[in-house]
């Protein structure tokens, strides 16, 4: 590895598949206490992830992912993202996300309180994140 090599490893994993695995030069991910960026030689870092957008830059391309919460570990130039769910921008089913958004909005309008309202709010955030990311390609 030469001095000006800026690349490090990233793996994005969900319980049912490997979403991304490869050398990258920049990562931005939605930490629970705010979005954070990672470059080469980042200090060891362990964080919970919020629902949101993951941005990945390789030496020649940019990728966007919609993540549905989880964890990230940065250690020794290897970043592991253990997400509950994650999709690459071009895999997002826009129709399904739109329907999910409508459903969630309808539920919130019905003003049910407690667990259901929280779930609807989370579903709404997930759907809106997906739509936002899908629009980036």
């Amino acid at each position: 590895m030469s001095e000006d090599d800026k690349s490090f490893m990233l793996e994005i994993l969900t319980p049912d598949r490997v979403i991304f695995s490869g050398e990258i030069i920049y990562l931005r991910a939605p930490g629970i206490e705010g979005s954070f960026g990672v470059l080469k030689n980042h200090i060891p870092f362990l964080t919970a992830l919020d629902i949101g957008e993951i941005e990945v830059e390789t030496s020649d391309q940019k990728y966007f992912f919609a993540a549905g919460g989880g964890f990230a570990e940065v250690l020794n130039n290897v970043v592991s993202i253990l997400a509950e769910t994650a999709e690459r921008a071009d895999e997002i089913d826009v129709e399904r996300a739109k329907k999910a958004r409508e459903r969630a909005e309808a539920r919130l309008r019905a003003r049910t309180e407690g667990v259901n309202a929280n779930r609807a709010r989370a579903a709404l955030v997930r759907a809106m994140t997906r739509l936002k990311i899908a629009s980036k390609i």
Binding site: I32, E33, P44, F45, L46, A48, F71
Partner: peptide, 10 residues
């Protein structure tokens, strides 16, 4: 490690 939030919450 740097933890966010605290280690016990994670």
């Amino acid at each position: 490690y740097l933890y966010e939030p605290s280690p016990d919450q994670i």
